[in-house]
Design a protein around this nucleic acid. Structure first.
Lengths: 110, 110
DNA sequence: ACAATAAGTCAAATTTTTATGACTACTCAA
DNA sequence: TTGAGTAGTCATAAAAATTTGACTTATTGT
C-alpha cells in the first residue's frame, strides 16, 4: 500500500464511500429508506428542520451515488418514491455497526 | 421513535457519531491509528496533500471526540504520539463494514 | 549562544456546504 | 379554467470547512 493509495481523500474508495453517506441530512434519509420506500413530502415532515432545497440536494446526491433510486408514481396526486438500490442495501451493515455502538458515555461527557 | 429522535443531525447520537469520523482527513488518520500509534510528522508524510493546519484540526477533533489520545513523548527530539482510545477501538467495526464493501462497480461508473 | 528538529499556532482567504425566499411544472377534480 | 396537491428549480446569502503563509515553542546537539 503506497502513500498515494492511503490518501483516502483523493484516491481511496473508502473515503469516497463515507462521503456518500455523510452530510447534514443524508444519514437520516438513508435510515428512513432502509425501512421502506420514502416520498419527498414524507421526508419533509419527518425532518421539519430541513428545507426543500436541502432535501433535494441530499436526495440527488444519494441518487448519484447509486444508493437511492427515484421512481415517479403516476397516481392520484403525482408521487415520487425513493427506495434503496442493491448498492444501497449493501450499505446497511455500516449503519448497523454505527447503531451497535453505545454512545451514551460520549454524549454525557459533552 | 419520534420525529425529533429521528432527526439525526440535531438530536440523534448516530449522526453525532458519524460526524466524529468524517471530514477531509479524519478517516485517513483514524485508519492509520488503527495500525498503531502515529506521530504528527509521520501523518504529514503519509498525507502529503494535507496541510499542518488541516492535520492539527483533524487531530484535535478526534481528540475531543475521545477517539484519539495525545501523548507527549519527551525523548531525543520531542515527539507527540496519537493512539486510539478504548472508544476509538469501538469504532473499528464501522470501518470494517466500510472495507467489506466492494466499491469497484461504483468507482467505475463515475 | 545558535541552529536544527518536531509540533505546533494565528489571521486571513478560499472553497464547500447549507439556508432563504421566490418561483415553476405536472396532474387531477370541480 | 381555476385551484389544490406534490415535487420540485433557481439565484443569492450565510455559514462551515479547508487552505495559505507567516510566525511560535520546546528540546537537544555543537
Amino acid at each position: 500500500m503506497t502513500t498515494q493509495e492511503n490518501n483516502l481523500s483523493l484516491h481511496c474508495p473508502k473515503e469516497y464511500l463515507l462521503k456518500m453517506l455523510t452530510g447534514k441530512w443524508k444519514p437520516c434519509i438513508f435510515r428512513y429508506a432502509v425501512q421502506g420506500p420514502v416520498r419527498f413530502g414524507q421526508i419533509m415532515k419527518l425532518l421539519p428542520d430541513a428545507t426543500r432545497q436541502a432535501l433535494t440536494n441530499a436526495l440527488r446526491e444519494l441518487e448519484e451515488s447509486g444508493i437511492l433510486d427515484r421512481k415517479v408514481i403516476k397516481l392520484k396526486p403525482l408521487h415520487v418514491e425513493y427506495h434503496l438500490t442493491e448498492l444501497g442495501i449493501e450499505f446497511i451493515p455500516i449503519f448497523k455497526a454505527v447503531e451497535e455502538l453505545n454512545l451514551l458515555p460520549v454524549m454525557l461527557k459533552k
